[in-house]
Design a protein around this nucleic acid. Sequence first.
DNA 1: TTCTCTGCAAACGCTTTGCATTTCA
DNA 2: TGAAATGCAAAGCGTTTGCAGAGAA
Lengths: 162, 162
Amino acid sequence: MNNPCSQHQHPHRLVQQPLTELTAKLRQHSRKITGPRQAILDVLRRHQNPMANREIHAALGQECDLATVYRNLHTLEDMGLVRRFDFGDGTARFELVPEGDDGHHHHLICTRCSRIVEIDECFPVEVEQALARRHGFTEITHKLEFFGVCAQCQAKSAPAVP
Amino acid sequence: MNNPCSQHQHPHRLVQQPLTELTAKLRQHSRKITGPRQAILDVLRRHQNPMANREIHAALGQECDLATVYRNLHTLEDMGLVRRFDFGDGTARFELVPEGDDGHHHHLICTRCSRIVEIDECFPVEVEQALARRHGFTEITHKLEFFGVCAQCQAKSAPAVP
DNA sequence: TTCTCTGCAAACGCTTTGCATTTCA
DNA sequence: TGAAATGCAAAGCGTTTGCAGAGAA
């Protein structure tokens, strides 16, 4: 909420797309602008962290069926409006892709409290390309996420120092 | 099978642990040496790529129940004998951890044929540590996997050039 | 003998799907 | 009106678990 000048917090989220801009994109892809769809986009717009289908559904408050949430996130992903992330817990999470960006970035996740921090660092492109060349691969991409224990959780478990 | 002098193929697999060494580790952890357990370890020993529970079970040929495979891989993972990998398809895969190594490495996976290549490259430690410091995280680790289209699959889809 | 491990079957959580109905364009 | 989207319920798939019986130490 505060900290609007942070340089490293959520660089991609500084510019929030208005809902009308998002629905315009739906129109461009000749998809219908339905209640559930707008509600889902609005929920994603209002949240800074990747959300699970079930979380989106909960935030909606019975506004639509869970299956509809799943179906819409597939659609939005195919359209490139939304990006899927996998933190290895068997649950897909989604973020709105910011304007003029492919949404490629990574996260740092607290293994105790699941706090999520968006990260700017990325695997070096030159190394990735060398890798691809050496093994004869093309269209190379990567999945990268960091895990650790956040400051708060360290404080909780640390013995009180007088 | 061939290519025994390759420098970049499977660096960790050049020395294969004998089965007796593996069962010795079970004994060290005071776990029982059972038929299913030995069979599972032997299957992993014989395969160069990460295997899914179902694949291990199939390779066993009805030698034990699938639930037993799941339970044993948890046990072996807890013991540090085996390492879990996640390629984002909702299926856990496991590799034997080589002697005197923590088994930390990554893979390059063909998105068409699922061919898997073991990779030496890793995310730069200094950058990872800077990342942790900046966000106040400790005990930092990462998950990293590469995806692309392998040479064979490119050849299949490419138009024949005379 | 004792404690662990196994087989079997049921359950679980996330996700997908078939079908009839509703809704947007 | 016609194609797309939704709700509901059922099923799919990887994984976990409860329980009684079998097996290792």
